[in-house]
Nucleic acid binder design. Sequence first.
DNA 1: TTGAGTATTGGACCGATGGACAGGTAGCAA
DNA 2: TTGCTACCTGTCCATCGGTCCAATACTCAA
Lengths: 206, 206
Amino acid sequence: MAHLFVCQGRDEIPRWREAFPQARLVNPQQARAWAGRGDRIWVMSNLEGWPALVSTLSGRGATLMVLSYAPNSLEAFQALNAGARGYAHALSPAELLRQVEVVTTNQGIWVWPELLAQVVGGTFKALGGESRLQEEILAVLTGRERAVALAVAEGQSNKAVARRLDITERTVKAHLGAVFRKLGVRDRMQLILRLSHQDASVADSG
Amino acid sequence: MAHLFVCQGRDEIPRWREAFPQARLVNPQQARAWAGRGDRIWVMSNLEGWPALVSTLSGRGATLMVLSYAPNSLEAFQALNAGARGYAHALSPAELLRQVEVVTTNQGIWVWPELLAQVVGGTFKALGGESRLQEEILAVLTGRERAVALAVAEGQSNKAVARRLDITERTVKAHLGAVFRKLGVRDRMQLILRLSHQDASVADSG
DNA sequence: TTGAGTATTGGACCGATGGACAGGTAGCAA
DNA sequence: TTGCTACCTGTCCATCGGTCCAATACTCAA
């Protein structure tokens, strides 16, 4: 599991060297040649064509972190889009760099704090239309039916749903029956599959 | 530094209890009363008005993590927008929950992997984390148990699975019982919730 | 007022489900 | 051989889940 720092020429980053003394400095060509699955690779955003490099190496299964001398939200988004898991200031203290390391090795995302709000907000566009389908599905249901359907979709039993909505189990069954009829599903399992990911076909176990 | 788990009534999450035995279960009112700076708080997304709760507590300087039975991008956005640093499946293994903990304590963001792709456009898929997670889940199962689990995750009944695998319904129950025990779920509904987000394969008619 | 739709509950029925027993075979390793 | 595991099957039983029958009450519109 290599630990690489990709930069142009002899772009020394003392803080980085202090944080990871065992890692090695390489140029983009060497990175493309050596990097593979599980490697941890830091890329400077002042490199020519860094997004393509990040995209390539993350596609191989390496973990990518981008360092910038002038962090900004556009670049942060570029980095994340290319598959980077971390985006920080190039002159961050060693301790912070190690923190980024910890986060990304644990499947997390680390973004320069000042940009975090903007990056999260920027995802709004990408997310907006997603759950429209689910809302469309639930639109044909009455309020009570919807509440029951959502609870069941969480894996709750009829009894648990009854407790949550403060009604009898019998009433839950009544609403659920209406839900099944309106959504055209046989049972609660297919309801879960329908609401979990709407694009999945449902089994016919005739 | 309190470590709280906010839920309605006694919503048992054995995996969570296993991950953080020292933490305590509270209701939303208690959480609002006690939580403060530095606290680590897990919130179930099936709570009434959870976004407001997350927003309030994160505003006080606490670290918020949201757990959902049915992760989706809209909810993920709501969570992050409200100030949550983590968003994961409620039935995640204890190890994964601790991973979320590590990431968020280090100023990182941890988002349910399948949604990460939608958040940052294909990032996660490129990292290959999807298949790795499924392998982790299914690795503990024997070949036959895996076949039964995947069929059930498609919404098949025990009888249909028996026909497909050419075994008796009794044997299906035996394998399924082992699957439940190994994966720490109560019934087939929770199994569907665990696997439906990893495996979107389409069922064939039995 | 009448009727439609919604929300609620009850009883009864029966298949599906999951656990607790208690076995059987085959293969593989010590 | 013994022990272990995967795999397969059986019976019994309590519970859950889904559908049939029915009823009451409330709101809203025609």
